[in-house]
Nucleic acid binder design. Structure first.
Length: 466
RNA sequence: GGCGCUGUAGCCAAGAGGCUAAGGCAUGGGACUGCAACUCCCCGAUCCCCGGUUCAAAUCCGGGCAGCGCCUCCA
């Protein structure tokens, strides 16, 4: 299995620190609002990578933080006249709902900054003691010049950075690129006691601390959006490696952005969408499928048309799986035919192609195409003359691959009264038998109004929620 | 200014030196069907341009052109 490591800018063979175990840390959102459509990408991508690692037999310790101390949260709290905790609690809950909607497996642990304060203070203390950080008037800075490897992840040269720096001159800092580990509190802001006075931590230190506490000094995979490469991840490396004296993460994975109209999504451009508002129109599963249709490192464009295309493609898989499901219930009861046995043995090629794609830096776009080829194979080879056993075996093989991508083609949204639907379908079947097309169509319309789609497939009558 | 990414059919998107350049969506034609939907069959690319390396280039190298990202809070 190969993966592209941002640190070395090469595809490398994946070798975990500990056999069969993977320690994975993913940078999570700042909880000041609903997560946006761009946040959906790392959620889906790194969840899929995790699922694949698990499929390959690794035990994955998956940690994703919530940043619940931040200027934006404080601003929001002031606007609403509530506590910062109320804001962050609310949006942590909402982010978890969105993650659930996207069928993201719960993390092993979702640490929060406010709950790790003693550890954060401890790490800053170590950095000061070791001479990597210094305090000026209650602010603790990391001295970037004291850490030799600064710039190794982003490929930046510290002197170039200083020349081109668009940061304000700050006379407290020893070097322009030094960043804050601890800042003194301002009235009205959340604060914690520390050796440098009351205040709160800077943004970067939290991830170094949480990774250390929940995973250890050295982890296998650190992941996040590509915009985090600099400065966030660069700073994490500096903090962790300076404090622990060990390599921080073996592999660094970064997902590309979701753009809107080929431009970066931003509030100022007015092309900003929360996942929640998109999910009102487009099912979460379609959003997930859409994200998987491209390579995780390429930028992808978000538009209604592309969502619709993704939805149609997903329907193709769902239709196929539902048809097979129907045969597992209504197919022949006899034993597998010789031809069926032969066909079953052919299926391994789809699984192989799927794995080859995923082994090559998690090429989900190619993996999806392996599923489509499997679907075509099933559509051509499964029908009313197939045995139940055959349908059962093929179904489980397709579902297995879908599961790895977090796609659940058999999942139906809860429908109020399935009994009533079944009754109406029976009535329609009767009408059709009597060639009473008007009545049959009337019942179909009635079901349609209930949000139920009826299809007379070659396998039989099938209904699904629209 | 520094660092980096991308350019493959109407659209999305794999492929990273050599089998007819995957797959999906859309359009059109046909089969099936009472109709609709589903499904099946058929139809589409000298891979941004110009040079070079090679027996062989979408793939490697050089030069253009076009678009995008990071360097500042951001997934």
């Amino acid at each position: 299995m190969k993966l592209y490591n941002t640190l070395t800018r090469k595809k490398e063979e994946f070798v975990p620190l500990e056999e069969n175990k993977v320690k994975m840390y993913v940078c999570g959102p700042t909880v000041y609002d609903y997560i946006h459509i761009g946040n959906a990408r790392p959620y889906v991508i790194f969840d899929t990578i995790r699922r694949y690692l698990e499929y390959k037999g690794y035990e994955v310790n998956y940690v994703q933080n919530f940043t619940d101390v931040d200027d934006k949260i404080i601003k929001r709290a002031i606007e609403e006249n509530v506590s910062a905790k109320e804001i962050s609690d609310r949006y942590v809950a909402e982010a978890l709902k969105d993650a659930y909607g996207l069928n993201v497996e719960p993390a092993t642990k979702n640490p929060r900054v406010t709950e790790e304060m003693p550890h954060i203070i401890e790490m800053i203390k170590i950095l000061v003691e070791k001479g990597f950080a210094y305090e000026v008037n209650g602010t603790v800075y990391f001295n970037t010049k004291s850490f030799d490897g600064y710039g190794k992840l982003s490929g930046k040269n510290i002197d170039d950075l200083e020349v081109g720096a668009r940061i304000e001159v700050n006379k407290e800092k020893k070097n322009p690129m030094d960043f804050v580990l601890w800042k003194p509190f301002k009235p009205g802001e959340p604060k914690w006691d520390s050796p440098w006075g009351e205040g709160r931590p800077g943004w970067h230190i939290e991830c170094s601390v949480m990774a250390k506490i929940y995973l250890g000094d050295t982890i296998d995979i650190h992941a996040g959006g590509e915009d985090l490469i600099f400065p966030h991840h660069e700073n994490e490396i500096a903090q962790s490696e300076a404090a622990n004296g060990k390599q921080f993460s073996k592999y660094w994975l970064h997902n590309g952005f979701i753009n809107v109209d080929n431009e970066k999504m931003s509030k100022s451009k007015g092309n900003f969408f929360t996942l929640r508002e998109i999910a009102k129109e487009i099912p979460y599963e379609v959003i997930r499928f859409f994200i998987l249709n491209g390579h995780y490192r390429s930028p992808i464009n978000f538009s209604r048309e592309l969502m619709e295309a993704a939805g149609n493609g997903l329907d193709r898989i769902k239709n196929c799986v539902k048809d097979i499901k129907f045969i597992t219930l209504n197919g022949k009861d006899s034993k597998l035919s010789e031809n069926e046995q032969k066909l079953i043995s052919e299926c391994v090629k789809f699984k192989n192609r799927f794995e080859e794609s995923m082994d090559d830096d998690f090429n989900t776009a190619d993996a999806v195409s392996a599923i489509f080829e499997f679907v075509k194979f099933a559509n051509v080879n499964i029908g009313t003359e197939s045995t139940r056993e055959f349908a059962d075996i093929i179904l489980s093989k397709i579902i297995e691959l879908c599961d790895i991508l977090g796609i659940e083609p058999l999942k139906e949204e809860a429908v109020a009264d399935t009994g009533e639907i079944e009754k109406l379908i029976e009535k329609r079947q009767l009408a059709k038998k009597e060639k009473n097309w008007a009545e049959a169509d009337r019942i179909r319309d009635e079901l349609s109004e209930m949000g139920i789609l009826i299809e007379d497939t070659r396998a039989g009558v099938r209904w699904s929620r629209k």
